[in-house]
Design a protein around this nucleic acid. Structure first.
Length: 324
DNA sequence: AATTGCGGCAACCGCGCTCGC
DNA sequence: TGCGAGCGCGGTTGCCGCAAT
C-alpha cells in the first residue's frame, strides 16, 4: 500500500512547459504569490499541471534572478568544498550560490564537475604510484628484517601498548612492543608507513559509504593515532590487532602488505569504471582526497576513501587499556 | 545523408519531514 | 497524540541536440 498520489496523473499535463504555461504561472505568482498551497494553485489559474510540477517550474526557472549555466571557477570551488563537507545536500549548497538552484547544481555536478575532479584524482594517483615504485626504502627495511619472526606467544597475551603514537607515523617513529622481555619492533614489520597498515585493513573489509564526514573523521583519527593498526574485531586490543600474523616471517608479511597495497591501489584506479551502476553521485570519499591536499590529510587517504564497515573504535576498550 | 551513441538538462518520482487539525 | 496534507529534497528518467561513424 503506497502513498496516495498528489494528483490525478491521468488528468494533468506532463513534460516540457510551454511559454503560455510559463506566462500564466509567472503572472499569477507575481500578483498573488504562491498562496502557500502549491497543490491548489494550478486549479486556481487553470493549468492542467501537478502542483509539484508548478512549484518546480517556479523555483528552478521562473522566479527572478535565476542564473543558468556559466559556472565560474569560484563557484566550482565552492561546490566541491561543500560537497566534500556535507555531501549531496544540494539545497544547502545552492543556498551558498545566489541565483543557482539545487537542480542546476546537481546536474552540473553529475555531468561535468564530478568528471573534472575524478580526472584530476586519477592523475594524482598515477603520480603517487610512480613515486612508490622508485622508493627503495622499503626494500632496505625488507632486507634488514628478512629473518625476523614474530613471537608466537604474543597472540594470547596483552603486550604493553604505547599510549601515544606519533602522527603522521613513519617507519622511524613506529613504537616497539614489549612482551615477556621480548621486543617486537614495528619498524621491522613495516615496509611502508601507516598507509600500508591502512591498506591492509582496507583491503579486508567491505566499505560503508553512508558514513558522513563527521562520523568518519573522529573515529578514523582515533583508530589510527591511538592504535596504529585496526583490529579485526570491534575492539582495538593489540592481541586482536596481531591475530593471524604470528606465523609469518616478516618477509612474507611485507609481501602480503605489498599485495594488499597493490590490490587496493588497483581497485582505486579502476573505481571509475567498475562503479558505474548509474549516474549515482560520486561519494565524497572519492572526492575529498582532491580537496584535502595537505600532507596530513594525504596520509589519511587510505582510510578516508574506503571506510571499513565493520571496524569501529571501541573507546571503552581503548581507555581501559590505557589505564592498565 | 543516415544512424548511433553520448552528454546535458528539464522534469518527474517517491520518500521523509513538518505542520496544522 | 495521531493522522493526513503539503512541502522539500535527492535520485532518477527520458528527451533533445550534437558529434562521431
Amino acid at each position: 500500500m503506497g502513498r496516495a498520489p498528489c494528483c490525478d496523473k491521468a488528468s494533468v499535463k506532463r513534460g516540457p512547459w510551454s511559454p503560455e504555461e510559463d506566462a500564466k504561472l509567472k503572472s499569477y505568482i507575481d500578483h498573488h504569490g504562491t498562496g502557500g498551497n502549491w497543490i491548489a494553485l494550478p486549479q486556481k489559474i487553470g493549468l492542467k499541471r501537478c502542483g509539484k510540477s508548478c512549484r518546480l517550474r517556479w523555483l528552478n526557472y521562473l522566479r527572478p534572478n535565476i542564473k543558468h549555466g556559466g559556472f565560474s571557477e569560484e563557484e566550482d570551488n565552492i561546490i566541491c568544498s561543500l560537497y566534500v563537507n556535507i555531501g549531496s545536500r544540494w539545497s544547502i549548497i545552492a543556498a551558498q550560490l545566489p541565483g543557482r538552484t539545487d537542480n542546476d547544481i546537481k546536474n552540473y555536478w553529475n555531468t561535468r564537475l564530478k568528471k573534472k575532479l575524478l580526472g584530476k584524482q586519477r592523475k594524482e594517483q598515477q603520480a603517487q604510484a610512480q613515486a612508490r615504485r622508485v622508493c627503495n626504502i622499503k626494500q632496505e627495511i625488507k632486507t634488514e628484517s628478512e629473518n625476523f619472526m614474530l613471537p608466537m606467544g604474543i597472540m594470547s597475551q596483552s603486550p604493553y601498548w604505547p599510549t601515544q603514537l606519533p602522527w603522521p607515523m613513519s617507519t622511524t617513529s613506529l613504537p616497539d612492543f614489549h612482551l615477556n622481555n621480548q621486543t617486537l619492533s614495528l619498524k621491522n614489520l613495516a615496509n611502508n608507513n601507516i598507509v600500508t597498515t591502512n591498506t591492509m585493513v582496507n583491503s579486508q573489509y567491505s566499505f560503508d559509504n553512508s558514513l558522513t564526514q563527521d562520523q568518519l573523521y573522529p573515529s578514523t583519527m582515533n583508530m589510527i593515532t591511538t592504535q596504529g593498526v585496526l583490529s579485526t574485531s570491534n575492539t582495538c586490543h593489540p592481541s586482536n590487532m596481531l591475530q593471524g600474523l604470528g606465523n609469518f616471517p616478516t618477509s612474507d608479511l611485507t609481501e602480503l602488505v605489498d599485495g594488499s597495497m597493490q590490490v587496493f591501489y588497483e581497485m582505486d584506479m579502476a573505481n571509475g569504471s567498475t562503479n558505474t551502476t548509474s549516474t549515482e553521485s560520486t561519494s565524497w570519499e572519492d572526492i575529498n582526497s582532491l580537496v584535502y591536499s595537505s600532507p596530513f590529510v594525504s596520509n589519511l587517504e587510505g582510510c578516508q576513501q574506503r571506510i571499513p564497515q565493520h571496524v569501529t573504535f571501541d573507546e571503552s576498550s581503548y581507555f581501559a587499556m590505557q589505564t592498565q
